[in-house]
Computed example of a mutant assay.
Amino acid sequence: MKNFKSIALALVVVLSTLSVTAQTKKINTAGSTINWTGKKVTGQHEGTINIKDGALVFKGKKLVGGTFNVDMNSIVVTDLKAGQGKEKLEGHLKADDFFGTDKFAMATLVFKKVVTKSPNLYTVTGDLTIKGITKPVTFDLATTANTATTNVVIDRTKYDIKYGSGSFFDSLGDKAINDDFTLAVALKF
Rank of each mutant, 00 (worst) to 15 (best):
N3V: 13
S32P: 02
K40L: 05
G65R: 01
K131I: 08
L109H: 05
M72G: 06
S171L: 12
D160Y: 13
A105S: 10
K39Y: 13
K135W: 06
P136A: 02
G66C: 07
G65H: 03
L18Q: 14
D155Q: 06
L121Q: 12
Q84V: 13
K61Q: 10
T144G: 02
N73S: 12
L141P: 00
D79K: 03
I27F: 02
D180A: 08
P119R: 09
T182Y: 14
K52H: 08
D127F: 12
T150W: 08
T101P: 02
D179L: 01
N73Q: 10
K62D: 14
K135S: 06
K62A: 13
A55T: 10
I133H: 00
T78P: 03
N146K: 07
I75F: 14
I34V: 11
D174Y: 12
H92P: 11
N151W: 08
T150Q: 08
G100L: 08
L9A: 15
S6G: 11
F189Q: 00
T67K: 13
A10M: 09
F139Y: 07
M106T: 15
M72Q: 04
L141I: 04
M72K: 01
K25E: 05
L128R: 00
P119L: 11
K94V: 07
G38D: 06
S74E: 11
V12R: 05
K62F: 15
I51K: 00
I133C: 01
T48Q: 10
D79P: 04
L93S: 08
K113G: 07
A184G: 04
E87P: 07
V185R: 00
M1K: 13
V110H: 07
L93Q: 08
Q44E: 14
D160H: 13
D71V: 02
T129S: 05
L128H: 00
S19R: 15
G54V: 01
E87H: 10
G83S: 10
V124T: 03
I49N: 07
T147I: 10
F99P: 04
T42E: 13
K188I: 05
K39L: 09
V12Q: 04
T149E: 10
S32G: 06
A145K: 13
D180E: 15
D127H: 09
M106F: 14
E46F: 12
T48I: 12
K131N: 10
D97L: 06
K112M: 09
G54A: 03
V114N: 01
D53H: 08
G31Q: 07
A8Y: 14
N50K: 14
G85V: 02
L56A: 04
M1C: 12
I34P: 02
F68W: 06
F189C: 01
I51H: 05
I177M: 03
V185D: 02
D71H: 03
K40C: 06
D71G: 04
L141C: 01
I154T: 04
K61W: 09
A30C: 11
V124I: 05
V41Q: 00
T150C: 10
V115W: 06
T48F: 12
N120G: 05
G132M: 00
L56E: 00
K103H: 13
K113W: 06
A107F: 04
G66I: 00
I34Q: 05
F98S: 01
D102M: 15
